[in-house]
Design a protein around this nucleic acid. Structure first.
Length: 597
RNA sequence: GGUUGUAUAGCUCAAUUGGAUAGAGCAUCUGACUACGAAUCAGAAGGUUUAAGGUUCGACUCCUUAUACGACCA
């Protein structure tokens, strides 16, 4: 398709030269897909040529259309509507294109000229609580973008930067010490991340009570927050941690271990993985060294209180603190260290950070600071900024207990898929294990598709009822369509139909067939665009379009009942190829497709 | 206060980056299973693209101002 469009551009450019004696570069022509209501596949917008050619838009369209049908065999017809020249591509050309797709081995990369060595950092959880709905959008996005970039032929490394240190981690540790009873995930049969999260919440609860108490006694709120006993203890614990206090570090290890186990179980359930883990406890010291380097080279400066700052006013940003007056590090400090480690490990030409848009400013500061330090890898940093997930009731808030837990949500979508699938009753003969697998595939398919179909940049609304729906623009709709093609293929094989027959001499195509080929041929464009914009939403939209087009095709033409042998084989091949394309597209979203459902 | 993002059908989202009569799904209504999977298909209805100006052959898209909601930085 990309090739065909280029050829048409070149032919149009030649036509303009021949007919009007004017040179217009092929890539300057405005070409777009023809709208459904008109005949044709490619449309030249002739408005933009009127000045250069000194003619009216209809006149230009008519002249170019006539020349092209006379000189380019692949163009079989044309029509002109106002400033639009609609070009019809010959059926033989569509069949040739289709033949090419059928013969292409699975997983053939789509070269885009984009980066070749990419690091995608995503997930990046705190080790004081379980994953929630917001993390799910992040994880699905990160995984999917990595898959999309792989499809362009790039080498992609997925990394997870674990936020395993800092005051918030101390809070859950302190909560456990003070309000816990030495329980373990085993003793209470609870996932480790949930156990730790419970004590983080308990800490916050008691801490708020202390603050409220102080405020009631007449203390100013800010002072109360800073001087509540629990906060003082947490700070004390953080200092002990930084000093390597044995008892504190050992508790830290134990509780983080529980969280890792819990998070890993969630990762396994949602089907995401990582090539490498980084831990902030392992990068903040390197970050401090970089701050010192900047200080030595006069790029950063110290204030009277001993804190270290970088001045990014020249870059349109503010002054930003790098080290506190007591010498402890801030987020930015450790991010400097992590960036350096990642580059040392992977020598990337593109480094993607999947982080919510609330950190837009922070990411600008990080990149500008690295640039100030003259780090060669700074320019390759790209912040894949995505919008937060809202609930019908508003924002998710820990305080108000409105946070949607990831593990629970996954259980719910699987259960919903199970209920609906059993209701349909089309799955006899599957074993218990196969059924469990199927419900998982469908439940996660619904959830992933729901979270990925929205433009990542945009804030989105999570509606629990809609997220488990199976009809319309949903993951299971696409999965269902795949299962249809698979079912049809099984029957065709039983009938001995050759799905790899020769189709070039088939003659005229039906509208539904032609549209199906056009959709299939778009795949490379879709991958290119999705990779360029880091947008799984484009792939989701495409998977939906494929499914929609196939179901229309399926309703309009007969496949196995078609009496003409050549046509029958062609339609089977079209179905098989559609199945392949759906499977490949869904794979880019991290979604599996079932053979039956 | 400063910076910044968003605003499209009742609801959730699209719109090939300035092109044709702004498209889908959900919800509502109508039709299609003794044809290959009805988790489907066909159709109806639903819009002053937040408001007001501007730029041009042409604006949901670009510019200005205002309003609403969000985020970040003090």
């Amino acid at each position: 398709m990309q090739q065909l469009e280029q050829d048409i551009r070149a032919a149009l450019s030649a036509a303009i030269q021949q007919v009007f004696g004017v040179t217009v570069a092929a890539d300057q022509l405005v070409i777009q897909p023809t709208r459904k209501e008109f005949a044709g596949s490619f449309t030249l917008v002739t408005f933009s040529l009127t000045k250069a050619l000194g003619k009216g838009p209809e006149q230009i369209g008519q002249a170019l259309g006539e020349w092209l049908t006379g000189h380019e065999v692949r163009i079989s017809g044309f029509n002109v509507v106002k400033g639009f020249l609609n070009l019809e591509v010959a059926d033989r050309e569509w069949l040739r294109l289709f033949q090419g797709l059928v013969q292409q081995p699975e997983g053939t990369p789509v070269p885009t000229g984009g980066p070749q060595d990419v690091v995608v950092e995503y997930s990046s959880p705190n080790t004081n609580k379980p994953l929630h709905l917001g993390h799910l959008r992040n994880n699905f996005l990160g995984y999917s973008v990595a898959e999309i970039l792989k499809a362009t032929g790039a080498t992609v490394s997925k990394v997870n930067l674990v936020n395993d240190r800092g005051i918030h981690i101390c809070k859950s540790m302190l909560g456990y010490q003070q309000f816990g009873h030495a329980e373990t995930p085993e003793s209470d049969n609870i996932k480790g991340d949930h156990l730790v999260g419970k004590y983080y919440v308990l800490f916050e609860k008691h801490y708020r009570e202390q603050v409220a108490q102080l405020v009631a006694e007449g203390v100013a709120e800010d002072t109360a927050k800073a001087s509540a006993p629990l906060m003082l203890e947490a700070r004390d614990m953080l200092q002990k941690w930084e000093a390597g206090d044995e008892e504190v570090v050992s508790l830290w290890r134990q509780m983080n271990g529980w969280v890792y186990e819990g998070h890993n179980a969630t990762y396994a359930a949602i089907g995401v993985d990582f090539d490498k883990f980084y831990y902030e406890s392992g990068t903040y010291l390197l970050g401090k060294e970089r701050v010192q380097e900047g200080l030595d080279r006069g790029l950063f400066y110290r204030k009277e209180d001993g804190s270290t700052w970088v001045d990014l006013a020249a870059e349109g940003l503010d002054q930003k603190i790098l080290l506190r007056s007591d010498g402890t590090s801030v987020y930015l400090t450790q991010d400097l260290g992590t960036a350096e480690l990642k580059y040392a490990d992977f020598h990337y030409d593109s480094s993607i950070y999947v982080i919510a848009d609330e950190q837009n400013y922070h990411m600008q500061v990080l990149q500008a600071t690295l640039q100030k330090l003259g780090k060669p890898y700074a320019a390759a940093i790209h912040h894949l900024s995505y919008g937060m997930v809202d609930l019908p009731t508003g924002k998710m808030k820990t305080r108000e207990g409105t946070v949607v837990d990831a593990d629970e949500l996954v259980r719910e979508v699987i259960e919903a898929a199970k209920v609906e699938t059993l209701k349909k009753g089309k799955i006899e003969g599957l074993s218990e294990e196969e059924l469990a697998q199927l419900f998982h595939t469908l439940g996660l398919g619904a959830l992933k598709y729901y979270l990925l179909k929205v433009d990542p940049k945009k804030r989105m609304l999570f509606n629990p009822e809609e997220s488990v729906q199976l009809q319309g623009d949903t993951g299971p709709f696409v999965q269902y369509t795949y299962a249809r093609t698979a079912s049809l293929r099984r029957k065709a094989q039983q009938m001995g139909i050759d799905e790899k027959a020769e189709f070039l001499s088939l003659g005229e195509l039906q509208k539904a067939e032609r549209e199906m080929i056009e959709e299939l041929a778009r795949y490379a464009n879709v991958v290119t665009e999705a990779a360029r914009t880091f947008s799984p939403a484009i792939v989701a939209q495409y998977a939906y379009d494929l499914a929609k087009a196939y179901n229309r095709f399926y309703a309009e033409v007969q496949v196995l009942q078609e009496p003409d042998e050549a046509k029958r084989a062609f339609r089977v091949a079209l179905s098989v190829q559609t199945g392949r394309a759906i499977k490949a597209s869904m794979k880019l979203l991290g979604i599996a497709v079932p053979e039956r459902m």
